[in-house]
Amino acid sequence: MIYELRVYECLPGRLPALFKRFNDHTLALWDKHGIRQAGFFTTMVGESSNRLTYFIAWESLAEREVKWKAFVTDPAWLKVRDESESDGPILANITNQLLAPTAFSSVK
């Protein structure tokens, strides 16, 4: 397994719109494409409370390449993304890392 760590920094006041998009649309589209989330988090203490951090679990880099490409080019996703930003952009920045568990990790 590999894990993708994604951090979305929202524009001021736009975190609720991002939550709504994930809750109402994105997760169902991920199910459609076989994308498995491994947890979503907000920042309680730290640099920014305007941030959504989450993990996606992948069997391999090849699986990620195929499934992520299918998701980001899905016309249903493009429509949802555009509609959710009809009153302005949601995100200021996105970062991601692909992580491999160590031999001593409780997560494999």
Rank of each mutant, 00 (worst) to 15 (best):
L91N: 13
L78I: 10
D31G: 15
K32V: 12
G88D: 09
Q97W: 10
T95Y: 05
M44H: 14
S86V: 09
V7W: 12
K79T: 00
A38N: 07
A100E: 15
W58T: 00
S48Q: 13
V107Q: 06
K20M: 11
R51L: 07
A62L: 00
R21C: 02
A38Y: 01
S60H: 12
K32E: 15
V80E: 07
V45P: 03
F40L: 13
I2G: 02
R64Q: 01
E47G: 15
A62P: 00
L18W: 03
G88F: 11
G88I: 06
M44Q: 15
K108D: 04
G46P: 10
G39Q: 02
R14A: 06
F71Y: 14
N96S: 11
T102M: 01
L91V: 09
S49Q: 10
S60V: 04
V7A: 10
T95E: 03
S86Q: 15
A100H: 13
F55M: 09
I56T: 04
L78A: 10
Y8W: 02
F55V: 05
L61N: 05
W77H: 03
P75L: 02
T26G: 06
I90K: 05
T53Y: 02
L15Q: 15
G13N: 03
F41L: 10
R14V: 01
P16T: 13
D24N: 15
H25G: 10
N96C: 09
A57I: 01
A57Y: 00
A57L: 05
S86A: 15
M44A: 15
H33Y: 11
L99F: 05
T102L: 10
H25V: 11
L98T: 06
E63T: 00
S60C: 03
Q97D: 08
H25E: 14
F104E: 11
F22V: 06
L5F: 01
I56D: 00
F41N: 03
M44T: 15
V80Q: 08
K108V: 07
I35A: 09
W30P: 02
Q97T: 10
H33P: 07
N50E: 14
S105C: 12
W30M: 11
R6E: 14
R81N: 14
S60W: 13
L98E: 08
I2F: 01
R21I: 08
C10R: 06
L5A: 02
R36G: 07
G39N: 03
I94G: 04
N93V: 10
N23W: 14
R51K: 08
D87W: 03
V7I: 12
S106D: 15
G88H: 11
W58S: 00
P89H: 12
L27F: 15
E47H: 12
M44N: 14
G88Q: 08
W58M: 02
V66I: 12
H25F: 14
P75R: 02
L11E: 11
F41K: 07
F41C: 01
L15K: 14
F19Y: 14
T43C: 08
H33L: 15
